[in-house]
Amino acid sequence: MEVRTIKVFTTVDNINLHTQVVDMSMTYGQQFGPTYLDGADVTKIKPHNSHEGKTFYVLPNDDTLRVEAFEYYHTTDPSFLGRYMSALNHTKKWKYPQVNGLTSIKWADNNCYLATALLTLQQIELKFNPPALQDAYYRARAGEAANFCALILAYCNKTVGELGDVRETMSYLFQHANLDSCKRVLNVVCKTCGQQQTTLKGVEAVMYMGTLSYEQFKKGVQIPCTCGKQATKYLVQQESPFVMMSAPPAQYELKHGTFTCASEYTGNYQCGHYKHITSKETLYCIDGALLTKSSEYKGPITDVFYKENSYTTTIK
């Protein structure tokens, strides 16, 4: 009895394709271990004539594949690729409408935090270190965002349907971005203890939790000093293409032309909904596939993004 075979390709990165001759009487799992086709788990399936010449994702289970996976995804987590594939199996079914010149995501599976993050990423200057993220990001900007969303979920250790947080998501993504040249110098002034300067680099240099107003941050924000008295913390120097200011959701007025974009969060910790506000020729609110415009805006804002380049204080 002759062994019926077909020729397929296996890959971990969709760049390096490895030619395989597979036995049609055995499952993919018996031949390769966990195997995925377009995100779908085909591990328990036997090869079919229609699979001839198709590319299958496999887990990096030998040295060659491990090197290829690390170079593309910059992670050695053995569960990463499987999590990416199972997320992709959902995100490829989502709709990605162009809204006001940006790629958004039609609401499904509690994905409003991903839509808000995706919209924000198209408006701030950011370059990702893992080629996987950078490639998928370019495709997302062009309207094909399924891979990018699935990668975000995998890097953030999230599953489809789980509630997510924009600030946490951005923080994970910033860790995989090139923020080497970003720098922030802060000064804390206390009447009792004097003053202390701190220099922050990388992710810490672009994120701040405690106030939404970048102007206020430049002037000074009140913080408790270690001595128990009130101290003032203010920005001395900022070198970065953008800054992200966050605070627990509270009524906040966004003035046209003073910011790049913002995240609105309605609801409580267990259950809520994100919308995205962007400042173009007027203010726009993007909620999944829905767009509304207004000249002014007041609502429960939790993150505001500002364009920056270089700032030095005039406070002496």
Rank of each mutant, 00 (worst) to 15 (best):
E2L: 11
E2Y: 10
V3S: 13
V3L: 13
V3M: 14
R4N: 14
I6L: 13
I6G: 05
V8H: 00
V8N: 06
V8Y: 04
F9A: 10
F9H: 06
F9L: 11
T10V: 13
T11Y: 08
D13W: 00
N14I: 08
N14P: 14
L17Q: 12
L17T: 00
T19E: 15
Q20P: 03
V22R: 04
V22G: 09
D23G: 12
D23W: 10
D23E: 13
M24F: 09
S25C: 15
Y28I: 02
Y28E: 10
Y28A: 07
Y28S: 02
Y28P: 04
F32L: 14
G33R: 09
T35L: 13
Y36L: 04
L37A: 12
L37R: 13
D38E: 13
G39L: 07
A40C: 15
A40E: 15
A40F: 13
V42T: 09
V42M: 13
V42C: 14
T43H: 11
I45C: 14
K46S: 13
K46C: 14
H48P: 12
N49G: 13
N49W: 09
S50Q: 14
S50A: 14
S50H: 10
S50L: 15
H51Q: 10
H51K: 02
H51I: 03
E52K: 13
E52F: 11
E52Q: 12
K54H: 12
T55M: 09
T55F: 06
F56C: 09
F56L: 12
Y57R: 08
Y57K: 05
Y57E: 04
V58F: 15
V58C: 14
N61V: 10
N61L: 12
D62Q: 09
T64W: 10
L65Y: 09
L65I: 08
R66G: 10
R66N: 11
V67L: 14
V67E: 12
E68S: 07
A69R: 02
F70I: 11
E71W: 06
H74P: 01
T75H: 04
T76K: 13
T76D: 10
D77R: 06
P78S: 13
P78F: 04
S79P: 15
F80Q: 06
F80Y: 03
L81A: 00
L81N: 14
G82Y: 09
G82N: 10
Y84Q: 02
M85Q: 09
M85R: 09
T91W: 11
T91D: 02
T91K: 07
K92A: 10
K92H: 11
K93C: 13
K93Q: 14
W94G: 06
W94C: 04
W94M: 00
W94Y: 00
W94Q: 08
K95C: 13
K95S: 15
Y96E: 01
P97A: 09
P97E: 10
P97R: 07
Q98I: 14
V99F: 15
V99Y: 10
N100L: 10
N100A: 15
L102K: 07
S104N: 05
K106T: 13
W107K: 03
A108D: 08
A108E: 11
A108P: 08
D109M: 00
N110S: 08
N110D: 01
N111L: 06
N111W: 03
N111R: 02
Y113V: 02
L114S: 04
L114Q: 09
A115S: 11
T116E: 04
A117K: 03
A117D: 03
L118S: 01
L118D: 01
L119A: 05
L119P: 01
L119Q: 04
T120N: 11
L121M: 09
L121V: 11
L121D: 00
Q122T: 05
Q123V: 02
Q123T: 06
I124Y: 05
E125F: 05
E125P: 12
K127A: 10
K127L: 09
F128S: 05
F128V: 03
N129W: 14
N129V: 09
P130W: 04
P130V: 07
P131I: 07
P131R: 09
P131Q: 06
L133W: 02
L133C: 03
L133T: 05
Q134A: 11
D135P: 07
A136W: 08
Y137W: 09
Y138G: 13
A140E: 00
A142S: 11
A142F: 10
A142V: 13
A142R: 14
E144Y: 11
E144V: 06
F148G: 04
C149Q: 00
C149P: 04
L153T: 01
L153A: 01
A154H: 03
A154I: 05
A154G: 05
Y155T: 01
C156F: 05
C156E: 00
C156W: 08
C156P: 03
K158I: 06
T159V: 13
T159K: 15
G161M: 07
L163C: 13
V166A: 06
E168R: 09
E168H: 05
E168I: 08
T169R: 04
M170H: 02
S171V: 08
Y172T: 15
Y172K: 15
Y172G: 14
Y172C: 15
L173Q: 03
L173N: 02
Q175H: 14
Q175P: 06
H176M: 10
H176N: 05
A177D: 01
N178M: 07
N178T: 02
L179N: 02
L179H: 01
D180Y: 08
D180S: 11
D180T: 10
D180I: 07
S181H: 15
S181Q: 15
R184T: 06
V185E: 06
L186S: 06
N187F: 03
V189M: 09
C190M: 04
K191N: 14
K191G: 11
C193L: 02
Q196H: 15
T199N: 03
L200T: 09
L200N: 06
G202V: 02
E204G: 06
E204N: 06
E204Y: 07
A205I: 01
A205Y: 00
V206Q: 03
V206L: 04
M207W: 03
M207E: 00
Y208E: 04
M209V: 13
T211Q: 08
L212W: 02
L212P: 04
S213N: 12
S213L: 07
Y214C: 05
E215Y: 02
E215V: 04
E215F: 05
Q216W: 04
Q216T: 07
Q216D: 15
F217E: 02
K218Q: 05
K218R: 05
K219M: 08
K219V: 12
G220I: 03
V221G: 04
Q222I: 08
Q222P: 14
Q222N: 09
I223K: 08
I223C: 15
I223A: 13
P224L: 13
T226W: 09
G228S: 04
K229H: 12
Q230G: 04
Q230A: 09
Q230E: 11
A231M: 03
T232K: 07
T232M: 13
Y234D: 08
Y234H: 04
L235I: 07
V236K: 06
V236F: 05
Q237K: 11
Q238S: 04
E239P: 03
S240C: 00
S240T: 02
S240A: 04
P241G: 11
P241I: 01
P241N: 07
P241E: 06
F242P: 01
F242A: 05
F242W: 11
M244P: 00
S246I: 02
A247T: 02
P249D: 02
P249N: 01
Q251H: 14
Q251P: 14
Y252Q: 01
E253V: 12
H256M: 13
T258G: 05
F259H: 00
T260M: 15
A262H: 05
A262D: 02
A262Y: 01
S263H: 15
S263V: 08
S263D: 05
S263A: 02
G267T: 00
G267M: 00
Y269A: 12
Y269T: 12
Y269N: 10
Q270I: 10
C271D: 06
G272D: 06
G272N: 07
Y274M: 06
Y274S: 00
Y274R: 00
H276E: 01
H276K: 02
I277K: 03
I277C: 01
T278P: 03
T278M: 12
S279H: 01
S279I: 00
T282S: 11
L283H: 00
L283R: 01
L283V: 12
G288V: 02
A289G: 07
L290W: 09
T292W: 02
T292G: 06
S294R: 09
S295N: 14
E296T: 15
Y297Q: 00
K298L: 10
K298N: 12
G299Q: 00
G299I: 03
I301Q: 01
T302I: 05
V304P: 03
V304N: 00
V304C: 06
F305A: 01
F305P: 01
K307M: 12
K307S: 12
N309A: 15
N309Q: 15
N309T: 15
N309E: 15
S310N: 10
S310G: 00
Y311I: 09
T312P: 07
T312V: 12
T314H: 15
T314A: 14
K316V: 15
K316R: 15
